[in-house]
Nucleic acid binder design. Structure first.
Length: 288
DNA sequence: AAGAGGCCCTGATAGC
DNA sequence: TGCTATCAGGGCCTCT
């Protein structure tokens, strides 16, 4: 589900709703996530104030008053829902409001604040929570991660030197979190389409201008997706239960056999498979 | 050591 | 209608 933009949308909403608030109660309904919720999970959060909510790559970083951290990864299907007690603030979307309360629909954890209840729901259980006792430990977790596309370290020089003597294709590099952090399967296709680069091309053959295009377009695509509230493909919703809007702007993702949207291109979008994941590209403007 | 592929899970959808 | 197969936004782990 969530790539960097979707996680950022969740972060902004959490910041608005629970920053500075105290967690009064933690109710675990199902400990089974990618990593089992530890026995001390509730205890580590209960009665703590949330001092900040940050994000790195696809991870939410909840900073607690004692300068410890709890990170949240949403995996493929994790969602966070906020339910407010005040009647006038109830979400208008009825199906959303009902769904978290139904049994067996994968509400793993509930967090109670004054007037607010927060629910972590994750059908496929690829998401997880992880604690870090201080900032140094947190830093270690992300040590091997590459820069985010917005980082000035992510520039054409970095790309060229990173690609040297490697045989991997450019699509798989964009998915490689050690190279660049935050890009996932949807935005990788969109970035390469915008850059007119074939996903199968071994990255070491990219020209300097093509590397520049990838840098610029990665930023452009992610920034735009954030501005549009993220992408809703199957089940991504923001914490209010609203859908994002960026999926309406996909140029290639999910458009197999449809016409290329580029003005003056008569090509067709093809779906191919790379490392067991689907890639979409225009047969003409992304010619190898 | 880099890179490919299996696997962890459930649910939605397509095809028969 | 109801079965089975396939696919899904991630990433860890194993094998070569």
């Amino acid at each position: 589900m969530p790539e960097l933009p979707e996680v950022e949308i969740v972060r902004q909403s959490l910041l608005k709703n629970i920053k500075g608030k105290k967690i009064n109660k933690v109710l675990v309904r199902n400990r089974n996530l990618r990593f089992k919720l530890e026995a001390s999970f509730e205890k580590k959060l209960k009665n703590k104030f949330i001092s900040n909510i940050k994000r790195f790559s696809k991870y939410l970083i909840i900073e607690l008053e004692n300068k410890s951290f709890c990170i949240v990864h949403l995996g493929m299907s994790g969602t966070i829902h906020i339910i407010k007690n005040k009647k006038k603030d109830l979400p208008t979307n009825a199906s959303f409001y009902n769904s978290p309360n139904l049994p067996k629909n994968h509400n793993h954890v509930e967090f109670y604040f004054k007037n607010i209840k927060l629910i972590y729901n994750d059908p496929r259980r690829f998401g997880y929570f992880q604690f870090f006792s201080d900032f140094n430990n947190l830093k270690k977790k992300f040590k091997s991660y590459g820069p985010e596309p917005f980082n000035k370290k992510f520039n054409s020089k970095y790309l060229i030197s990173y690609f040297r003597k490697k045989d991997k294709n450019i699509k798989n590099f964009l998915l490689d979190q050690n190279f660049v952090s935050g890009i996932g399967n949807i935005y990788a296709s969109e970035i390469l389409y915008l850059s007119k680069i074939n996903p199968l091309l071994p990255a070491k053959y990219l020209k300097k201008n093509q590397c520049k295009d990838i840098v610029i377009n990665s930023r452009k695509i992610l920034q735009n997706a954030i501005r549009k509230g993220g992408s809703t493909i199957r089940d991504f919703k923001n914490t209010k239960g609203d859908q994002g809007n960026f999926q309406k702007e996909f140029k290639v993702y999910g458009r197999d056999k449809q016409k290329c949207k580029r003005f003056s291109c008569s090509g067709t979008i093809n779906k191919i498979t790379q490392s067991n994941r689907s890639t979409f590209l225009c047969e003409i403007c992304q010619k190898y």
